[in-house]
Write a protein that binds this DNA or RNA. Structure first.
Length: 391
DNA sequence: TCTAACTGTCATTGT
DNA sequence: TAACAATGACAGTTA
């Protein structure tokens, strides 16, 4: 494959962004950016797209392994921002820092009066921000006042990925590019715990969500492309928060408030700190909640099991009692018949079992009486009991 | 491709 | 009133 000469290193970033990549290209590139595990087909598409859109611009070899600080001058960044209305301070700061700019240089860059409408490191500017990707692949940015197309930034990420993919195929090693991608990953990485090879292609609506402000996004990110950092850790890192996520979450509220007061943090940083703390606490709470719910379910299942065991045991006991009662009844009948057969009347004749019964009175006396008397007596007794109950 | 389990997050409510 | 815990609901990821 032949590449143009490397004499195009110093091309204008603005020119590159606005004239070399169509929105369609940006879409392809961005999509591929999210797709770390590139299939052969996708790779070929990227190559085709790239070669079509940048045939007379850049030398991929020159891009590969290059430092964007060298590739894109501060003036390029200025041009881009002047051209593209608004930049989120976080993104730009991070982008610049990730790309090797000195902190002071970046600050000066951002603080140049009148250079970038709507852009400031002043906390007062850090209002609600949101990002989305238009149907044409342009990254839409909104700070609640204006919105601007950031095709350039999107393309930058895609460009880098393109570069990376060239590297994977023909130019092993692309460490510089990974730095450039960090910002995008920080902003909208749903796969931040994943290895690059595990990352799945992101649907269009993912891109939209990824580009939104963390608070607005259903930021259900679980994995990282390059590290095991959580999204909050990425954000904390990008905003240069002086504490780790664990510290932010676990420190007592007094220490937390003191820390905020003493560190002269911007509104954005304070807001992020509070969000991180809230999310961290809630994450632990949710974990505890699920544990409790699981334990409750397990306990209920155990209760059900115990009750079933108890039921079986009671059934067995009931069966045994019934059997015992039957045996006792049988013994009592045998005893009754035996005793009755031995009883004689005044003339020494045996009693007729059909006409007489052995009767036990309430005071313990035993008589042999005619059956019909027992029946009438039982009736009287029943009536007495009933009267006593009613009375 | 579908599904269930897992997980992080948000919104809400109660303390 | 702020901070926090608890929890239902939702949605993304993964096996």
């Amino acid at each position: 494959m032949n590449y143009p000469s490397s004499s195009h290193h110093n091309i204008s970033l603005t020119h590159t962004l606005h004239h070399c990549f169509s929105p369609h290209d940006a879409t392809l590139l961005r999509t591929d950016y999210f797709t770390q595990s590139s299939s052969e087909t996708r790779h070929l598409q990227r190559q085709e797209s790239f070669s079509q859109s940048s045939s007379n611009i850049t030398n991929p070899e020159s891009l590969h392994g290059s430092n964007l600080t060298a590739l894109f001058s501060a003036a390029d960044i200025r041009n881009l921002m002047a051209h593209d209305d608004n930049f989120d301070e976080i993104k730009l700061m991070s982008l610049a820092l990730e790309n090797g700019f000195d902190t002071i240089e970046v600050s000066q860059l951002f603080e140049e009066p009148g250079s970038y409408p709507g852009l400031s490191l002043n906390p007062s500017h850090s209002t609600t921000v949101s990002y989305s990707v238009s149907s044409e692949g342009a990254v839409e940015y909104s700070n609640g006042v204006k919105s601007a197309s950031l095709q350039g930034l999107g393309t930058l990420g895609g460009h880098c990925q393109e570069h990376a993919n060239y590297g994977h195929v023909e130019y092993p090693g692309d460490a510089e590019c990974s730095r450039e991608t960090t910002l995008q990953q920080f902003l909208h990485n749903y796969t931040y715990n994943q290895l690059p090879s595990q990352a799945a292609p992101a649907p269009a609506h993912h891109q939209q969500m990824w580009m939104k402000k963390p608070n607005e996004v259903k930021d259900r990110c679980h994995n990282s492309t390059d590290t095991n950092l959580s999204s909050d850790e990425h954000r904390a890192k990008a905003l240069r928060l002086p504490f780790s996520v664990d510290e932010i979450v676990s420190m007592p509220v007094d220490s937390f408030n003191t820390m905020i007061a003493k560190n002269h943090l911007t509104d954005t940083q304070v807001s992020l700190l509070r969000d991180i703390r809230r999310r961290g606490k809630n994450k632990v709470a949710a974990q505890n909640c699920r544990k409790r719910k699981l334990n409750a379910i397990l306990n209920l299942e155990e209760d059900v099991c115990n009750l079933q065991t108890q039921k079986e045991s009671l059934k067995k006991e009931h069966t045994q009692c019934s059997r015992s009662i039957s045996q006792m009844k049988q013994k009592l009948n045998n005893l009754y018949r035996d005793i009755f057969s031995r009883l004689k009347d005044d003339q020494g004749r045996p009693f007729n079992p059909c006409q007489y019964v052995i009767h036990c009175s309430s005071d313990g006396s035993v008589f042999v009486i005619p059956k019909h008397l027992v029946k009438s007596e039982q009736k009287q007794d029943n009536e007495k009991e009933q009267k006593q109950k009613d009375g």
